[in-house]
Design a protein around this nucleic acid. Structure first.
Lengths: 340, 340
DNA sequence: CTGTTAGCGCGTTCAA
DNA sequence: TTGAACGCGCTAACAG
């Protein structure tokens, strides 16, 4: 693709050196190891750098030093606000360390993820953050072969490739189900995203089932729905479930904005929440705090996951320690509001 | 930062060449210009590439060819869903061209934007997308000096540094105001984000005023509020305005989720919308289609702006044309719903 | 069609 | 504290 400078020649380090009447290495040091130079020389060089408008060439620097200052992050969807919190956390921490963020979304596809990992490795990223704990065999193998630190988020991987930073979808779904039971709901419905190709949804469903088992309740297929994302899906799932299983008194929407969609539908139909039907959501989206009634949900450490992932990468990069697999469970909390 | 391969040596192009018993250039060509090779050689090389697990080193490639395949994008906020649509559009188009996206957020600060531009130029990005039409003098000068294509979005810049792809905030705000007047509202309030340091908010306010002038109405400071972002701000602004200027019959919330916050507040207070107060929003957030009542708003081509920005960059990169300043106005539309 | 030569801009290493 | 030589992994330009 594009020539870096169609318009002319960039100022190189050697140009600065000549302009300041020092060697190239002195310029290099003034920029990277200023302590090694006399104050006089350092000042001269840095002034010259500014005067001639020199912009360091990290790409050459990276090649020469066999290091990189770019981290790659792959999320299922850039537009989904849940992931943007992780991205933000990651970007913030990386920035303070002078590391750049290469971003891409996989569209929930393992094949696309593999292609992106390929591309990122070709860019010689010095670390990787994946919102995924399942990968194609080739992807996993490439990452291992690259020997760079990598953090898997999105769920607590049983056997991380390298490191894992997340909460447990299983536990979160289980605890919320138990919590609803504790508030007296006898027939708790469960709605999640399609579990096919979505390990996180699968874990949540398992957690729901585990809670039923713990409660000594029967599984009832009529109380479970797998749907696509979106406000409309949540609305449909609720209406449908209440028709086919009229005994349902609470629904736990374990995904995205499903709960909000259901709540709006209830408003439209003038169904009282929680009297007629109780609703609980998964993520603490901003909006859940402002609906009428406000929605009970889980509070997941999305931003913190991004931050801690970046920190884990940076630490591993600095201390060239061997890749000791590490799991970091950041937990979650249940937020009680008026909808349950 | 991190060594690229703490664990061992990467397979280089020369290793592939030796394994396949050809010259290094033949490997390079098999990867970049396969048409130049005999089918036999090409197949041999590509097989070897796979067999030895070679991952191209774009960083070396970029250095040698003085090209880059990374585009940088800077948005005010990564978490704001408005911008994530632009990011998505940009990322999608770039991906099909094999170009990567370096992302960062400026936090609405010009100084931070300047620092990021610095960092991106050091990474030798081959193009830049900025959601901003105002920059520090040094930032603008650095960009020009770098000679790379750049797209400014977020508003239609009067004099773009290079190219501009956007809608006009001025026109959008003006048209919506006129539209509300056309629906019979006599006293139209206006709420926007703090205009200090925010050219887009400023343009919207100007558009509102221009509409009043066109309508032959007086400006009334009691009908204008500048607030911080957030659902709560919208709610407060509405309540406050209705107390101090009881004649207000419609409020145009020209920013973010302000309108949603106001609507929720109205629900809480049992104020009928639009009978007691009409509410119009700026962006067509997903949720505006699902509230009760659904919200009238503008539909802005956020995704398309990202896509077209990326396309503009790619085109400029391919044809080494001189930097002819270009403006692309993608327009907007008004979506009438029940709230007005 | 394939190979050879000469760098890209910088950091590492060693010498002064 | 400073400098010179060499090479990172790859591509451009030219030769065969």
């Amino acid at each position: 693709m594009g020539k870096t400078r169609p318009g002319g020649h960039a100022v190189r380090m050697i140009d600065v050196a000549r302009a300041a009447n020092v060697s190239l290495m002195t310029v290099s040091r003034a920029l990277k190891e200023p302590a090694l130079l006399s104050e006089e020389t350092r000042k001269l060089v840095l002034d010259t750098v500014r005067r001639v408008g020199y912009v360091p060439n990290h790409i050459a620097s990276n090649l020469a030093s066999a290091r990189s200052n770019v981290v790659g992050q792959i999320v299922p969807s850039i537009q989904n606000s849940l992931y943007s919190h992780s991205i933000k956390g990651c970007a913030d921490v990386l920035r303070t360390a002078g590391v750049q963020l290469l971003l891409a979304d996989s569209g929930y596809s393992l094949e696309d993820e593999e292609a992106l990992i390929d591309a990122f490795l070709a860019q010689r990223v010095c670390g990787l953050v994946l919102h995924n704990t399942v990968h194609t065999p080739r992807a996993a193998q490439m990452i291992r072969a690259a020997g760079i630190p990598i953090v898997e988020t999105g769920d607590l991987a049983r056997t991380p490739i390298d490191m894992a930073v997340s909460y447990s979808n299983f536990n979160a779904a289980k605890e919320m189900t138990l919590y609803l039971a504790g508030r007296g709901y006898k027939s708790i419905g469960f709605v999640c995203l399609t579990t096919k190709n979505n390990m996180r949804a699968r874990e949540r469903l398992k957690g729901y089932h585990a809670a039923l088992t713990a409660l000594g309740r029967e599984r009832n297929p009529g109380l479970v729905r797998e749907v696509e994302g979106g406000l409309t899906s949540g609305a449909h799932a609720m209406v449908d479930m209440m028709q086919r299983a009229p005994e349902v008194d609470a629904i736990f929407f374990a995904g995205d904005v499903l709960a909000v969609g259901a709540l709006f539908e209830a408003q439209r139909r003038n169904w009282k929440v929680p009297e007629r039907i109780a609703i609980a959501g998964f993520d603490d989206l901003d909006i859940l705090r402002h609906t009428v009634p406000r929605l009970t949900c889980l509070n997941l450490p999305r931003l913190e996951i991004g931050r801690r992932s970046a920190e884990a990468l940076l630490q591993r990069m600095r201390s060239n320690e061997p890749a000791v697999p590490t799991k970091l469970d950041l937990g979650f909390e249940i937020i009680q509001r008026e909808s349950t």
